Simulated assay, not measured.
Amino acid sequence: MKVFHLAHKNSILNKFLTEIRDKTIQKDSMRFRRNIERIGEILGYELSKNLKYKTQKINTPLGAKQVNLPDNEVVLCSILRAGLPLHNGLLNYFDDAENAFISAYRYHPNNTEEFEIIVEYFASPPIENKTVLLIDPMLATGRSLVSVYTALKNYGTPKEIHIVSVIGSLDGIDFIKNHFPVNTSLWIADIDKNLNAKGYIVPGLGDAGDLAFGKKM
């Protein structure tokens, strides 16, 4: 798996990352969602450089021009609910993509820190031989992404998979490397070293879904 870590290079991305991490600024849920969306746009732009392109002739009011355009059938697949702002950012750039949505959440059967991943809802177009962008803002343990990939196999075998995340842990990245096919790339804004006992990224930013849409029961 190829890993593209964008925060390694200084850019305006660092400003958006800082604001979604800052516990004072992140209280503004509208700004939090917009910053996640903007990070999605940056990730989408960088990812687009690795797609296939074809040459096409277009006509302007003053003449003809040869242009190179993306030649991939793209499917954006987001994990609900936290993935929605990131999905919107990618959709701003891949505006003709097909869209898939899946629910995956942590279930604590014994009210302890141990959990399993439950996948309940999945709406997807066929993905056979297409380019799938698998969208999850927080790559913590990696178990949600692996569960989603297992469910995704029922809809076909994609040509390639691009995982798109905002913040991930080293442990989570190592975990998914062992469960995804070789034609997978990870596009991630920033990487933190640690997970706490509950499996949350440290320092991370907290619960992205709660920060974007309010606390859940």
Rank of each mutant, 00 (worst) to 15 (best):
K2Y: 04
V3P: 01
L6N: 14
H8G: 03
K9A: 03
I12T: 06
I12C: 04
L13S: 00
N14P: 01
N14A: 01
L17I: 00
L17C: 00
T18W: 09
D22G: 09
D22H: 15
T24K: 11
T24Y: 11
T24A: 13
T24N: 11
I25G: 02
Q26E: 14
K27V: 01
F32L: 09
N35S: 11
I36D: 10
E37D: 11
R38A: 12
G40Q: 10
L43I: 07
G44R: 00
G44Y: 01
Y45F: 13
S48K: 00
N50V: 00
L51V: 00
T55M: 06
T55Y: 04
T55W: 05
I58R: 05
N59S: 12
T60Y: 14
P61V: 15
P61Y: 14
Q66M: 13
Q66R: 03
V67S: 03
D71I: 00
C77P: 03
L80F: 13
L90D: 07
L91D: 09
L91R: 10
L91M: 10
F94V: 00
F94D: 01
D96S: 12
E98S: 09
E98A: 12
A100R: 04
F101V: 08
S103A: 13
R106A: 09
T112N: 06
E114A: 15
E114V: 08
F115K: 03
E116L: 08
E116N: 06
E116F: 12
E120F: 09
Y121I: 04
Y121Q: 11
Y121F: 13
I127L: 07
E128P: 05
E128K: 14
T131I: 02
L134E: 06
I135A: 10
M138W: 02
A140D: 07
A140Y: 08
A140N: 03
G142N: 04
G142D: 04
V148G: 02
T150P: 03
A151N: 14
K153D: 01
K153S: 02
Y155W: 12
G156P: 10
T157V: 14
P158N: 08
E160H: 05
E160T: 04
I161T: 01
I161S: 04
H162I: 01
G168A: 02
L170E: 15
D171G: 06
G172V: 03
I173A: 14
F175S: 04
I176F: 10
H179D: 06
F180G: 10
F180L: 15
F180Y: 13
T184M: 10
L186V: 13
I188D: 07
N194L: 08
L195T: 03
N196Q: 11
K198D: 01
Y200Q: 08
G204N: 02
L205F: 14
A208Q: 07
L211P: 00
A212L: 12
A212D: 05
F213I: 09
